[in-house]
Design a protein around this nucleic acid. Sequence first.
DNA 1: GGATCTAAAACGGTATACCGTATGAGTCGC
DNA 2: GCGACTCATACGGTATACCGTTTTAGATCC
Lengths: 214, 214
Amino acid sequence: MPRTESAAACLRQEILRGELAPGDLLAESAVAVRLGVSRVPVREALFTLEREGLVVFGPTGRAFVRELTSADFEELFALRLTLEPMAARLAARRGRVDVLPLEANIAATGRAKTIEEITRLDLEFHELILRASGNARLLKLWLSLRSELELWLSRLHRQHQWKTRGTRGETVGAHRLLLSVLRTESPAAAERLMREHINGWKNWLPSGAREEPR
Amino acid sequence: MPRTESAAACLRQEILRGELAPGDLLAESAVAVRLGVSRVPVREALFTLEREGLVVFGPTGRAFVRELTSADFEELFALRLTLEPMAARLAARRGRVDVLPLEANIAATGRAKTIEEITRLDLEFHELILRASGNARLLKLWLSLRSELELWLSRLHRQHQWKTRGTRGETVGAHRLLLSVLRTESPAAAERLMREHINGWKNWLPSGAREEPR
DNA sequence: GGATCTAAAACGGTATACCGTATGAGTCGC
DNA sequence: GCGACTCATACGGTATACCGTTTTAGATCC
């Protein structure tokens, strides 16, 4: 069943790249002809994107590209600060964390050249820990926030509100530390470190990051 | 747009009441003729129910009534234990919690006669706190778990695996305590008490509650 | 010039139809 | 009897068509 998924993937990419601006109307018919499919798959793709937080439905059923406010960012951040330390704790408690993908991710981050690439690998690293937690629902909840986070970050990048300098080294160092704690299988320490990591990440963001990006 | 929603409501009720058994196939065509609508609204209703965790899709796109295992219960419980204390903390920190609906809920619980009614009011009480947290995404995440929890509880009720005796008084007492702490606007205390409340609730469940209910 | 009314176009909700694939029962061969 | 094969059926994915409602733009009136 590729139609719905490919339509969703296409729209997701266009939204994250900023080709579709916040507040833009996503009319089913127009999207359908543009993507060369019928309205039904488009309709379902829009539902998917709504669940991901990239699209919102108006009172009369019309879909619009999501607009984000500083309050949205605070909400997302508060949830990361709760969910991810929990995931780190569970992953450490389960023990036998599969470290190879995590190490590969850190190595790739060390070779990354653009801020977009670093961000992508950063999110991937965190997703690996969510998966390692073994709680499928926890992962699902986190994934439902991930696209929104990507949306926020992509808009931030587009207006260059990011201290590129040092980000890569900072990320690699923090992730190395996280990985080493996960290996020690000390749940409490892993939880605490993840909390600090995310708090630190917030401070690392540009000062204007809590304002609405466009 | 009532068709999709009413179809979802109807199916949700049938699943929660146990009229549709775990593992039952929900064929779009069959459901459509049974509910007197076309396949399109049924299709979208099934997506909604999948998001709620009441329905799962097989590899070939067929929808089945969700089956729950003890691992599912543990996951749900672990997430409540993270999300709800957070909500209590946020609600207490915001202050000015609207206590009237909470008090009304406690009073209604005191008058409740059946275990189903107590459970419904219990979930409603917790939902009110989630709403009072002011974090819309936190509420959304919790709501996405709520139907699954209801599914679990309804199946538990149906096999009478529940100590009805004392449940009502226990619930009312615990909720009174929670409400009083929320009024003091002490975030840390509210968080801690909610964590204890949920842990206590787990112990209150019948011993066999962590086995698969049917 | 601005607000209001009106009519045409746009849009979403739903029904129906078609097609390819998966499923499951019946049959054939062992 | 038991397993593999086959074919009719069931089912899901998608396209198209229709209808009522909402938007929107143009015209009218104050």
